[in-house]
Design a protein around this nucleic acid. Sequence first.
DNA 1: TTGAAAGCGCTAACAG
DNA 2: CTGTTAGCGCTTTCAA
Lengths: 343, 343
Amino acid sequence: MKSDLPPTIYDIARAAKVGIGTVSRVFNNHPSVSNDTRSRVLKVASRYNYQPHPMARGLARRRTNAILVYLPYFTSFFFVEILQSVQSVLGDAGFDLILHGVKHPGNAAESMQKPTTRGRVDGILFFSMKMPEEVLKEYERLSIPLVFVDTHHPAVDSYFVENVRGSRIVTEHLIEKGHVDIGMLNAVRDSSPARERLKGFRDALKEHDLPVNPEWIIHAPPGPLDGFTKESGYHAMKQLLALPKRPTAVVVSSDIQAIGALEAVREGNPKQKIAITGFDDIDLARYFELTTMRQPMSEMGALAANRLLERMQHPGLPPIQRSFVPELIVRKTSAVKAVEHVS
Amino acid sequence: MKSDLPPTIYDIARAAKVGIGTVSRVFNNHPSVSNDTRSRVLKVASRYNYQPHPMARGLARRRTNAILVYLPYFTSFFFVEILQSVQSVLGDAGFDLILHGVKHPGNAAESMQKPTTRGRVDGILFFSMKMPEEVLKEYERLSIPLVFVDTHHPAVDSYFVENVRGSRIVTEHLIEKGHVDIGMLNAVRDSSPARERLKGFRDALKEHDLPVNPEWIIHAPPGPLDGFTKESGYHAMKQLLALPKRPTAVVVSSDIQAIGALEAVREGNPKQKIAITGFDDIDLARYFELTTMRQPMSEMGALAANRLLERMQHPGLPPIQRSFVPELIVRKTSAVKAVEHVS
DNA sequence: TTGAAAGCGCTAACAG
DNA sequence: CTGTTAGCGCTTTCAA
């Protein structure tokens, strides 16, 4: 006797004296069911506490009602905020979120390893990593809806921040403040936001005929989170402070690193203060009075999630590229004057 | 012609000239397959880029390889840290994580609403909320493995922090510092950690024959995250500062609230400083030099995840209750002396 | 409007 | 060691 197993559609059908097809129709809001039978089925179902089995349903219907969120090890503040809005949008649409944190964002190829992707999800939200072309091809072949966030590719819906532009904006802010000797503390060299932010930095200096001192550009060594960590910022700043000649201002590639850098400065207690800027405007930034570039994280998350929903409905849509220009938030850490250099 | 659909086990079987049973065995590491055929199947499979369909597999095998993580709207720092270790343990064991953030932790009954729970997951990790008895009963009836974290129930594996004890410890710390007029800024009144922490606070005062001034015990109004927010702490402290007679020290029910409180104090700039303590020891606490009670978050997460794995293997296991005593971390915010009260 | 039957893609006996 | 077959629980024609 299969006593305690959850009830199946057969149990309900039998108890309601209808065919399983009818029960199915009721649970799928199919119009052609008489009100009478519908309510009868519903009553029986609720008495039995019946709920359609998602796996069986998924198999038959060829969809899972789950979407995969693929992101770099999800410990960072940045993602917490985005995830929130994503979950809100997708959850309301009746989708489950399957989280997949990638330990080392370098090889996103891990993605294809696990069967997770196959018939398990209806769509994928892919964050902040560069997807290898082969992997992308594979997804396309399987024609599984895909949306990029904080990264981009011409063939895929992409929602991202204009890093180059943003980085140029903060750098110019520093220049306007009178700084001439400006350095940069960057994340891991081959991370793409890192590269873009470096470019923006260089562009700004070049445009203002300011020299780029290679000694003042410090990249994080390979490590967790691609160097977008407090520790990385801390060490980079230590390194910078150890230099005989130091910049008066430093552009840092993320808030979290900037906070680490701030700590290093505080410890080092140099007589000449250093202006510091971050990137992201995470919650913490406010506490540290950190001048930074704000990224519209929640907005990006929500838009991307909605786009994924759309694309799942209409697979043929041409990919769109939506970029956001980050906003300069001026706080105290960039208020350091560059006096000694004004001649 | 079913050209572009993902290959099924039949395609592989045909191409490798074996039965589907054999293919299945290969993919399940069943021992009784000759090395010869095994490698042949594997080769064909990789050429076809075949991957077993999780839904079909789940249906046949009666398990999903996914586990549900059920937690209060997952924006808080606390959970980010726990999630990290959970994902690590469960991910390594080959499970997917389905995240479910509850907007209003009050009615965890939402849990049964969505079909999510039914055949979609093999186990559930339930965080920081009190689960209604009826819901618990339902889970038991379905005999779905369940583990509690940061909450507890005698019938369920529970990993939690001893809030009463912890709260008493910080309070005593303040007392030892010479404080006599001590207040408490709490979360929403009916949240269970809030209640427990209040009890610990009271116990400590009582034990030391210190008066409990009801005016100095401020509960957060109903709101997001049960009042475990910066804003809640900020407002509570404002309220306290507005009082004619104020305590010299305040026990706050979480770090994040304490940080809000700190901000209120800074703004208010009272001549008489106030000692403040938090609870949790989130990352931020260090920056604010906040004295607090550290909870072993990652450890709890990992242990709970492992326990869930165990329980899924051996459903009969008796429930265990594992409590953790938080550790007092003394920093600057409690270093305020209570001079005026020493007679 | 409804029931019956044929899959969805896979696993797990059951025979060889 | 391997092929065959009967489900897993549901959706979806196809007739009635």
